[in-house]
Amino acid sequence: MPSLSPAIAEIRLAVRTALGSLPERAKVIVALSGGADSLALAAATAFEARSRGIEVVTVTIDHGLQEGSADAAASSAEKAEALGNRAIVERVDVAADANGPEAAARDARYAALRAVAARERAAAVLLGHTLDDQAETVLLGLSRGSGATSLQGMAPRREDEDGTIWMRPMLAVRRATTEAFCAASDLEPWNDPHNRDHRFTRVRVRENVLPVLETELGPGIAEALARTAEQLREDAEAFEEMIHETIEDIVEHAEAGISVSVAALAANPAALRNRIIRLVVDSEFGVSLTRSQTLEVARLVTDWSGQGPIDLPGCSAARRGVRIVFTAK
């Protein structure tokens, strides 16, 4: 009996561990682009799901952004069906986005996956992101200077407010391993031309930045970045629990808005104070404050000299006596 390829064994184990958190005879969605990462995920999921009676449905999103995209999507679906999965192809319209075509395509893709998961009553949506994707995400967050939240990268498991569960079983797996999985399984992945298009920031990070870091600083950079993301997620979870406990005592509803105790904010360290401000505004008004906006609000607590209301997206913040009041516009 031939021995099992190490790449196949590694990815099957990762998928088996992820599926272990789901009930038997559940249904899962596998997002399948046709590339090596998602194809390896679809094959490993098909294999591991059988013993637990889990139904696997692959969903391939046709963004319609390049010639032949419909044929590529159909080919991916055929490969999924050959593995024993049920396959769905969804065509989406990618609207213009101020954040660029990558963000627009991502938003359209996730919206379609969420809709299919709801329609199919799936227990979870499995995504084929790897350790390399995680390292790229951390570097992109670092370049934007957007703080610890973006440096946390992608979570292995996340549940949205609508109940959609997203799982990334392969976040500890290198991209080279998914390629070796496909080679050992006689699976031919689709090579998306956009993955080599240097107009896209992520491609430049993948092909230019990370290799330079590996050359100049030594091997293991991708793993180090992934570890950083994991540690920051642990810290963020602890902070989140502290913030929610604190907010219950210091927040009150106000006319057309919400208010926070000045004394309570002042008593907390800056990191916790700023997180409370951001969370209050996000929860009440659905707005994400930038760091500069957050610091301006914090000055109403730490550097009060009679300044007037601060204009924020969707609301305004003003100091009224012993409270900071956020009012809807």
Rank of each mutant, 00 (worst) to 15 (best):
T178I: 06
T228A: 03
E161G: 15
H244C: 04
A226F: 00
T201D: 12
L232W: 01
I221A: 15
V203K: 06
N191V: 13
A176R: 07
I258Q: 03
E237T: 08
A263V: 04
A183V: 11
L151M: 12
T177G: 08
E248N: 10
W190K: 03
A155Q: 07
E223Q: 09
R199E: 12
E223N: 08
G257V: 00
I250H: 01
T246V: 13
H198N: 07
N191H: 05
E234M: 13
R206E: 10
S185H: 07
R206W: 06
R199H: 10
L217W: 15
D186H: 13
R158M: 03
P219I: 08
E248L: 14
T164V: 05
E237C: 06
I165V: 11
L151T: 02
L187C: 08
E248W: 13
F181D: 07
R233K: 11
D186S: 14
I165Y: 00
G163Q: 07
A183S: 14
T246E: 14
F200W: 09
V251S: 02
H244M: 07
A238M: 09
D197E: 04
P193Q: 14
A183D: 12
L187Q: 12
A183G: 12
A224K: 15
A222K: 15
S150K: 01
I258R: 03
R168F: 01
D192S: 11
V251K: 00
S185P: 03
W166K: 02
I258G: 00
G153N: 00
V209A: 10
Q231R: 06
R206T: 13
A226W: 00
L171N: 06
E241K: 15
D197L: 04
G218C: 13
R233G: 01
R175S: 03
E179T: 15
E159P: 03
R175G: 04
M167H: 06
I250D: 00
P169S: 11
T215A: 14
H194P: 02
P156D: 13
T246G: 05
A172I: 07
A183K: 13
P156Y: 04
E230Q: 07
E240P: 00
P211D: 12
E255G: 05
T178C: 14
R199V: 12
A254M: 02
A229Y: 00
L187T: 12
A184D: 12
R227K: 13
T178S: 14
M167P: 04
E237Q: 11
L217G: 10
D197K: 02
E216W: 07
P156M: 10
H194E: 14
S259Q: 12
R206Y: 11
R157F: 04
T149K: 01
T246H: 08
E230T: 05
I243N: 03
A226P: 02
I247M: 11
A256H: 12
T215H: 09
A222C: 09
E255F: 07
D186I: 05
D249S: 09
L232T: 02
R168A: 04
T164P: 01
L171R: 08
S150C: 05
R206C: 14
F181K: 10
D192F: 10
R168N: 06
W190A: 03
W190S: 04
L210N: 05
H198D: 10
Q152L: 00
L225M: 05
I221E: 13
S259Y: 00
E234R: 14
Q231N: 04
P219T: 11
V203C: 10
E252T: 06
E252G: 02
M167E: 08
